[in-house]
Structures are given as structure tokens and as C-alpha cells.
Amino acid sequence: MCEATGTATGTVLIENETVRVTEWHFAREGDNTGWHRHEFDYVVVPLFDGQLRIEAPRGQMSLADLRNGVPYYRNAGVEHDVINANPFPCRFIEVEIL
């Protein structure tokens, strides 16, 4: 993921020539990643049951229902801001395929 300036905290756990693995932590409802565009294909593994609000270009909003440990895949080029829609902290692991 490119540099984003939101209130969520991203901690790079692994980075090499093949993958970058980042743990994203949202301490409270409303925390966000900040606007960003994914430069690489990626997989997200939620570490909670709940929802994230996704804001896309042109103000489009959607809710993503996530389940602990159930991964999903996205192609490079996705542009969005990811926002914690839960009244509790949440985390996910993002694996970018470099």
C-alpha cells in the first residue's frame, strides 16, 4: 500500500522482494487508513468479526462484512479509505504480493 495518513496504525511485519505483510490496528470506531491506492495485488486476513466502512472515489460508501480468519483477495489499483465501523478495536493482516 502506498503511504497513507489516517488514524489507524500500520506495522510492517515482513518485507522482502516477494511480499510485504502489514498488521493494521484500528483502536476505536472511526479510525481510518487514510486515502490510498494499492500498487500491488493483495490479500487481507481479518482478525475480528465485524464491519469496515469503505469510502471509494466520488464519495461511494459501502460496508464490508468480515469474519475472523476468512481472507479475501483484491487486484492492484484499488483506491479507497478503510474505516472501522465497529464500537470496538479491530485489526487485520494485509499481504501485498510484490
Rank of each mutant, 00 (worst) to 15 (best):
C2T: 14
C2K: 15
C2N: 14
E3S: 12
E3C: 08
A4H: 08
A4I: 00
T5Q: 13
T5K: 14
G6R: 03
G6Y: 03
T7G: 00
T7E: 02
T7A: 05
A8I: 05
T9R: 14
T9A: 14
T9L: 15
G10H: 06
V12E: 11
L13T: 04
I14P: 03
E15I: 05
E15W: 10
N16E: 11
E17N: 13
T18V: 10
R20V: 10
R20W: 12
T22H: 04
E23F: 11
E23Q: 15
W24D: 13
W24T: 12
W24S: 09
W24I: 13
A27S: 10
R28C: 00
R28F: 02
R28P: 00
R28K: 15
G30D: 13
D31E: 12
N32W: 00
T33R: 03
G34S: 07
G34T: 06
W35P: 09
H36A: 05
R37W: 02
R37M: 07
H38Q: 09
H38C: 07
E39N: 06
F40A: 13
F40D: 14
F40I: 01
D41H: 15
D41K: 11
D41I: 08
Y42N: 10
Y42W: 10
Y42S: 09
V43K: 03
V43L: 14
V43E: 12
V44K: 06
P46W: 01
P46R: 02
L47M: 15
F48C: 05
F48P: 01
G50E: 01
G50F: 11
Q51H: 13
Q51C: 06
Q51E: 13
L52R: 14
L52Q: 14
R53E: 15
I54H: 08
A56L: 14
A56E: 08
G59K: 04
Q60L: 00
L63I: 08
L63D: 07
D65I: 05
D65G: 07
D65W: 04
L66F: 05
L66M: 11
R67W: 01
R67F: 04
R67Q: 13
R67T: 13
R67L: 09
N68D: 15
N68I: 01
G69L: 12
V70N: 05
V70Y: 02
P71G: 07
P71Q: 09
Y72T: 09
Y73F: 15
Y73N: 10
Y73D: 10
R74L: 07
N75G: 04
A76V: 02
G77D: 01
V78L: 11
E79F: 01
E79L: 00
H80I: 02
D81N: 15
D81G: 01
D81T: 15
A85E: 10
A85G: 07
A85S: 12
N86Y: 05
N86F: 09
F88H: 07
C90E: 03
R91V: 08
F92T: 06
F92P: 03
E94D: 07
E94Y: 06
E94R: 06
E96M: 10
E96D: 13
E96F: 04
L98D: 04
L98C: 02
L98F: 14
